[in-house]
Design a protein around this nucleic acid. Structure first.
Lengths: 155, 155
DNA sequence: CCTGAAAGTGCCACAAA
DNA sequence: TTTGTGGCACTTTCAGG
């Protein structure tokens, strides 16, 4: 089912995607509403699942995590048991921040946040290749982050 | 410079990465502090840039954006002018949620959020291939999202 | 508009260096 | 004694009805 936004909802969402902790009265002012109806709209957007959650975004570099890598992985077979086992294992590795089961090319695409190349080398040996059913891994390394946002394009 | 976390800082960060809008007094209770020193620590983490910002995470599917694709792109040349122009253009496309300049293989890796395959087809023709200097594009499509988090592994 | 609750500030106590 | 950190009390501001 499609949700029908008006201009004010769009402004609310756009603002909250940048300032998730903004106070309701400030938000209200920004979108041109008084606080009460503004809060009501936010609650509705939350209950409808449009707003999934609020999070703090940390700066990995400030904690010494200076490297992001993309790893493409191939499994020995793609049967349900192998895939599910892999999914479960990967889900427990906090360094693996994203994991997708892919159509074509590789079986999985992972995004991994880690200190540096050496730490990644060890991580791959100690954790990724140890998972049952893993056949091979190709690592792609970003040299420069051009753009990175949690902001979703509003229709 | 490396920041030195104690156990309480780690608990604060872990909590805020899941509940970015949690009230300070609740957070304080969770981490075993009274509100004032808890707030002080949060402010320090913010000022140190450990906490970059707070955001609302929206649910793309609830807005009809049911597809994420990864596009690997090659440019005709990798000189600064071409690359910068590409970076600037891509930065203005809200559907492009992530863009990395890569070492080896492809030149850029993009993550794109969009309604469906047909919308992507049009987006690629109308926007991506129109950018000056673009030579070719390969599109990788995730079939299943195994894991996706904004949570960064704490050292 | 009104009320209760939370945020934020100042000050003091205590402990470690 | 100095520095860092927790706690309490007070004022201001906000949420929510």
């Amino acid at each position: 089912m499609a949700w029908t936004f008006d201009e004010i909802d769009r402004r609310i969402l756009k603002t909250l995607q940048h300032e998730g902790r903004i106070a309701n009265n400030i938000l209200a002012e920004k979108v041109g509403l008084s606080p009460s109806p503004c809060l009501r709209r936010v609650r509705l957007l939350e209950e409808a699942g449009i707003i999934d959650r609020y999070v703090a975004i940390l700066n990995p570099a400030a904690m010494g995590l200076k490297l992001t890598v993309f790893s493409r992985m191939w499994l020995k077979s793609q049967d349900a048991a192998t895939v599910n086992h892999f999914a479960r294992e990967v889900g427990q590795l906090p360094e693996v921040v994203e994991c997708h089961l892919m159509a074509g090319d590789c079986d999985f695409l992972l995004r991994i946040i880690i200190a540096d190349l050496d730490a990644y080398r060890r991580f791959q040996i100690d954790h990724l290749t140890r998972i049952d059913g893993v056949q091979s891994i190709k690592t792609d390394i970003p040299m420069q982050k051009i753009k990175q946002t949690t902001e979703i394009p509003l229709p």
